[in-house]
Nucleic acid binder design. Structure first.
Lengths: 302, 302
DNA sequence: CTTTCATTTCAAAAAAATTGAATGTTAAAT
DNA sequence: ATTTAACATTCAATTTTTTTGAAATGAAAG
């Protein structure tokens, strides 16, 4: 009475329904008709219900059989998916891949690559999350992601591998109405201290705080992300360096102007990073394709 | 390699995970440890994956085992539900019960009864739908429902059973500002023809149209349901008979006033109706409880 | 009336699952 | 250091379940 329903049972029922007869189903399943008679009768006995209306011209599901199969079909499908998952896992495809994306980079290339991956219809779940500037390492170290895109600086001690995706240069760009824009000479450290600067807060929780773009100015305005920083500088709220590739349009339409600044901002090389221990095919695939994507950065051919 | 995953396999995995050891799981399942070794090894061979990390102090799921069980657990649960469905079906509970509810009746008693039924936690899906006045028979005949509440009139030829739930009386009620309200004498057929009347459209598609409340007036306004008709008559848009039990509050607060009318409106006896062929326990239960519910109608004790 | 498909029954055979005893290993307890 | 208790595994024997093939049967079609 208990546990009488098995997957094989459901497959047999489905085959009989599809072919319309025990004989046809037997052929489908490479079995002999009497085997199906046995299987079905046993199940019918166990359930105490007639599952098929047998005639000499075939067999049709009864209401009970329909009920059973209607609910059973999705179960069979789930099992089939599960089997595919296991096969994929066995072949080296991890069940889930989490990508952390630094907001300093555009999401477009990432989405494009993710889209390409989804087209392969693998049973690999892809999750991605944006992290604040510099948050990639943190996300990787605390195992909140498997791949971090757009990390920079020193590689934290531990088992990580990286691949360069390009260089990031900065321009000192400010609103044309800002007093420092009208100075007529290179901006000095002294000048800077006279005005507020805009700082992107770092969400990093494990790594020590990295001060990105702080020049010890009189006041600082903390904003949650780079887009806010750009917006704030366009409004003349403050000044600071901004990534060249993100402000091309602002420079073109005059919302921002470039100025020379005595305090230099070093170019940054950005990487994709992941744990050496992770060897899934999905990770490999993503590293390869994300590395080849056009992130709009300066690249040294090599 | 194919179809290596069975429900029994999943149950074994789950038992081992729960108890933390093959030995414990064997006890849970009333088997001998070597049986589980056999089962698990076979599955591991088939999948080509190690499912458990065996130590001398027990067994822990590997990543592959976790993946398998994580996806397998919901499958086991679905199968358990399916088995319960079949048991309930075998015991006479139909898998789905559709109730048509005539808008002339309040939904409150119905919802109360449905709530009571749901408390029993049976694997019976309950669907209910409101139908226009007189639409119950139609819904029943065309098999869009199993039980119709609030049908009236002749029982259509065919295999139906009914149970009375009470009588419905009508009052000729109109807005106090309506000219007919100021007449000072019983309203005649002639009077009626001078003013628009409000008619609820009948959604019935199979039965011949029953004109409910049409007095051949100059104009008629068709509204989709009784609530609209009451609202329309409160606004003085038209006149007509309304079910006594639905306008008690309107009469009390003066939105409507009762007037005598020469054209009488016969009381209606309302029934619950269902097909004789349907013998499910759910139907029986609902007929019994819906029949005993208080629909706010007049009842002749018997 | 015969042929053709069907399903079922039944006994035999094959396959799969289960058992129990033996083996070996480890961690905790003495 | 030795013993004890828990545990997983292996293997051959056993039991259970599934599958088979042949024969029986019935109904519709030619």
């Amino acid at each position: 009475m208990h546990n009488s329903i098995t997957l094989e049972n459901l497959r047999v029922l489905e085959a009989i329904r599809q072919s319309g007869s025990f004989a046809g189903a037997a052929q489908m399943l490479h079995k002999v008709p009497s085997a199906l008679t046995y299987t079905v009768s046993k199940l019918e006995d166990d359930l105490g219900l007639l599952l098929f209306e047998r005639s000499k011209k075939g067999a049709r599901l009864t209401a009970a059989g329909t009920l059973l199969l209607e609910q059973g079909r999705p179960i069979l499908e789930a099992v089939a998916r599960l089997e595919e998952s296991m096969r994929a896992f066995e072949a080296g495809w991890e069940p889930c891949l989490r990508i952390a994306h630094d907001v300093i980079l555009s999401t477009k290339p990432l989405l494009q690559v993710v889209g390409e991956f989804l087209d392969k219809e693998l049973p690999v779940e892809v999750a991605y999350d944006s992290v604040a500037v510099g948050g990639g390492w943190d996300s990787l170290i605390s195992e909140r992601c498997d791949i971090a895109i757009g990390v920079s600086g020193d590689i934290p001690k531990g088992e990580f591998e990286v691949q360069e995706i390009g260089g990031l240069s900065f321009l000192f760009a400010i609103a044309p109405t800002h007093p420092l824009a009208l100075l007529g000479r290179p901006i000095s450290a002294q000048d800077l201290r006279e005005y507020p600067s805009i700082v992107v807060s770092d969400s990093s929780r494990i790594l020590p705080k990295v001060s990105t773009g702080i020049f010890e100015s009189k006041q600082t305005v903390k904003v949650p992300d780079l887009a806010s920083k750009i917006a704030a500088q366009c409004m003349g709220l403050g000044v600071g360096y901004l990534p060249t590739h993100l402000i091309q349009d602002k420079l073109k339409d005059g919302s921002l102007v470039e100025r020379e600044c005595e305090i230099p901002r070093a170019d940054l090389t950005l990487y994709i990073a992941w744990r050496k221990t992770k060897k899934g095919k999905g990770l490999r695939w993503f590293v390869e394709h994300l590395g080849a994507a056009d992130w709009g950065l300066s690249r040294n051919e090599g």
